[in-house]
Structure formats: C-alpha cells, structure tokens
Amino acid sequence: MMMNGKRMLFQNLDRQKEEQGISAAQAAYLAGCRREKRVVRLWQWLIMVLFLGLWELGARTGVIDSFVFSSPSGVVETMITMSKDGSLWYHTGITLAETFVSFLLILFFGIGIAVLLWWNTKLSKILEPYLVMLNSLPKSALAPVFIVWLGANMKTIIVAAVSVAVFGSILTLYHSFSETEEDKLKLIYTLGGGRKEALTKVILPGNIPTVVSLMKVNLGLSLVGVIIGEFLAAKAGLGYLIIYASQVFKLDYVITSIFILCVISVLLYHGIARLEKK
C-alpha cells in the first residue's frame, strides 16, 4: 500500500513534468546544461582572481614595478579618490555622452544615406567607389585634419568617431537592401504600391536584423573613435585622462581609465544584446 502510494506520487510528479513538456531525459539534459554553465562561470572567476592576485602579489613583493605597471589596490585607491572628487563621473560621463551622440549620428546617417542610395540607383553607382575608398581609409589619419578644420573640441571628437563607422555602415546596409528578393518588391508593385511602399513595407522591416547587428558593431567602433578623438583633441574624457596621466607617469590613472573602458564596453554590449532579443 505504502509502495503503491509512493509510486503513484512519483507517477503524478512525472506526469506533471510531462504536462509542462519536460520528460526525464529532457530534465537530465537541462541539468547537464546547467552544470556546464556553472563550470564555465567558475573558471571565468578563477582566471580573474588568479590574474588580479598574482598582479597584486607581484607589485607588493617588487617582482613587477608598480610605478610602471600599477597594481589592483592602486587602481581601487585611485577609483575611490576619483569618485570622491567627482572626476571619475565627469570623465566617464563625457566619454559616454560623446559615444552615444556619435552612435546615434552613425545610425541616422548610415540608414539615411543607404536609403538614398537604394532609392537612386544612378547615385549609388556614381558614389560607390568613393564610399569604398573612404571605408578602407584609416580614419585616424583624418583626425588631425578635423582638428585643423573644427578646432580641438568635442565637435572634432564626434566627427572623428562618426567617420570611423559611418562609411562601413552605409555600404553594409546598402548591400543588404539591394539583396532583398526581387519578387517581394514585385509583390508590392502588383498590389499597387510604388517605391515608397517597397521601402516601408519590405526593405526597412526586412532589414531590422542587419541594422541591429550593425548597431552592435557600431557601438564598439564609436567608442574606439571617441577615444582616438580624445587622445588628440580633448580636455576631458577617459581618452584624455589616459594620455594626460601617461605623460605625467600616473599609471594608476591610466590603468583605472582602461578598466572603466572595459566595464563600459561590456555594459554597452549587453544593452544591445538585450535590445536584440526583443
């Protein structure tokens, strides 16, 4: 009787699980997945702790010169003093703001010009070689020119950052637009639509995945562009801080800035990844 009751209980549990769409084998598989994820996480933490630990130990014992290589505790101290006097938030804020503005401008001009090229095939034929050239040109070469034209200010930094990613974005989007199935456009025309409807009903919605993946790349590229700009033309921002602090041998500040950049790129990447899921 007892046995029977127990078995029934188990059967009920099993059935419940199956009703939720999970069989025993599936449950075992999921458990396996979870275990693997835990192991991966464990190693990730281990590597970080080991790296920071050895670095700190080396700095303390004098194996590595903490004046040149800084040290984790030095970075923490710097972060505390910087956040107390507010300079941490100030420089990070400036860099972030510049990155977002550049990112939005790249998105705007990237999509806008790609649409224009798709709309006007002749224009795209005329401009293509120029775009290809501008895209493969190393943009850091342009930064000094921008300084001369626009002055050593935020405008230059944003223009430099935009120039890093905008040409590639235009080309990628334009090619993705042109590869849209010809018959899908024909469908729009058979329903009485014109080029405008083809754009709004087929081309743009159909290319959302391309735009999102481009956004992922562009966020990283805008940050690169902004830092290059700040190296050359800034009075504030993390790029400025890195250059300035390295010139006066305050390596704690340099490493702290780099550390903040690491955090920013991870956060931005996850932000876009979340957007992609929607």
């Binding site: 009485g192 639509g193 919605p205």
Partner: peptide, 20 residues
C-alpha cells in the same frame, strides 16, 4: 507566397489594403 515573416497572417493579408 512571399508572406512577410515579420507580419502575422492577417497583417500579411492587409498589405494591399494598407498600400491603397
């Protein structure tokens, strides 16, 4: 059929109505 993958069945059917 060229149904748009991002539109539901009825929104696909509405395509011509929207355009016109």
């Amino acid at each position: 059929d060229h149904l748009m993958e991002w539109r539901s069945t009825e929104d696909n059917i509405r395509l011509g109505l929207e355009i016109n």
